[in-house]
Computed example of a mutant assay.
Amino acid sequence: MANAYVIGHITIKDPDKWSQYRDRVPATLQPWRGELVFRGKLVAVLGGEFAHNDTVVIRFPDMDAVKGWFDSAAYQSLIPLRLAAADVDLLAYDG
């Protein structure tokens, strides 16, 4: 069974607001069987250019779950906080 992944590349603008957002996201993942795979800070760019300093990877069972999570009222209600807290590029991958 192929999984789907959401990868977020992040530049934090307001650490307090980011902490609030980050603490609320896991509850939005549960109904969609989303699972945090990795969260980390950039140590080095080994090739090319990269603008962000944090990354998160979330695994879902499939793209329908990704879309369901992203479009859910629970997650959509967090987007204003995310926008105030950080510059985030969210990408979805079928894997």
Rank of each mutant, 00 (worst) to 15 (best):
D23E: 14
V43A: 14
A27M: 03
H52N: 13
D23K: 13
V45Q: 09
A73L: 11
V6A: 05
A85P: 00
V56K: 10
G47T: 14
S77R: 07
Y21C: 06
D62Q: 10
V43R: 15
S77P: 00
F70C: 00
P15Q: 09
D16Q: 12
D71V: 06
R24T: 02
W69L: 04
A74E: 12
P15V: 05
A86D: 00
A2P: 11
V25N: 09
V6F: 02
D87R: 11
Q76F: 03
K41I: 09
F50Q: 15
Y93V: 14
L29D: 01
I12N: 01
Y75K: 05
P26I: 11
G48Y: 05
A86C: 09
F60P: 07
D23W: 00
F60S: 02
D14A: 07
W18Q: 08
G95M: 10
S19G: 10
A84Q: 14
G40K: 05
I58S: 08
V56W: 02
P26C: 10
P15R: 08
D89R: 13
D89W: 08
G48W: 06
Y93A: 15
K41M: 11
L46Y: 10
D14H: 09
A2D: 09
D54S: 14
Y5K: 09
D89L: 13
F50S: 10
W18C: 05
H9M: 14
H9E: 15
F38C: 11
S72T: 06
D14T: 08
Y5I: 01
S77G: 12
A27V: 10
S77C: 00
L42Q: 12
L36D: 11
A44S: 15
Y75R: 01
R59E: 08
V57W: 02
G68D: 03
Q20E: 13
A84M: 05
F38K: 13
Y21T: 05
I12D: 01
E35I: 01
F50A: 12
D94F: 04
F70K: 07
L81D: 06
K17F: 06
E49S: 15
A44G: 08
K67V: 04
F70D: 01
